[in-house]
Design a protein around this nucleic acid. Structure first.
Lengths: 90, 90
DNA sequence: CTGTATCCTAGATGATACTG
DNA sequence: CAGTATCATCTAGGATACAG
């Protein structure tokens, strides 16, 4: 489970549960993440096949991230983690 | 969710789902973990209230680890992660 | 807007040796 | 058997500047 054993991966995947998001929007949803880690992490997630990266050939550039089927198979776990963290956390 | 956002915490907790284990036994179930990381990690889990540490005043020393109530509240998530990792992983 | 390239530091982790 | 201490290493991660 190195696929999600990271500080940011679960968070990024979680925020994509409700649909595709533009790069900038997604990044803003993850307070504290640096530009570097954001790019690096989504690339790994893409490589692991958990999400897809769609580039629109327009200017200014537009890039959207979306969960892949495999990524969606984690939905249940991600939501439970979120629930656990909210309810239990404190 | 820094409580489980670690390379080893989920694994340790997972192996305790079926009951308390002696220190040595538990450690053997986690291939690759160093003695240092093992001790350090269980201490953090104890501090976070996810498991309890019971010391038996005998010789040779006997120490057992067991999930706390809070730790057990993660059972569902831990098992799903395991299932996901087995089924999907590959 | 999105992403890449550097530089740099703190903390994570391993190996080893040692104590009770 | 269980745990601690120390030393050395590695790498995750942030800050910044730049490119398409």
């Amino acid at each position: 489970m190195n696929l999600i054993g990271t500080k940011w991966k679960p968070l990024i995947l979680f925020h994509l549960l409700d649909g595709a998001l533009r790069s900038g929007v997604l990044q803003k949803k993850i307070p504290g993440i640096s530009n570097k880690m954001f790019t690096q992490t989504v690339r790994e997630l893409e490589k692991d096949g958990l999400l897809t990266r769609k580039v629109f050939p327009v200017v200014p550039p537009r890039v959207e991230y979306q969960l892949s089927k495999r990524g969606q198979s984690l939905e249940d776990i991600l939501r439970r983690l979120d629930a656990w963290g909210s309810q239990d956390g404190k």
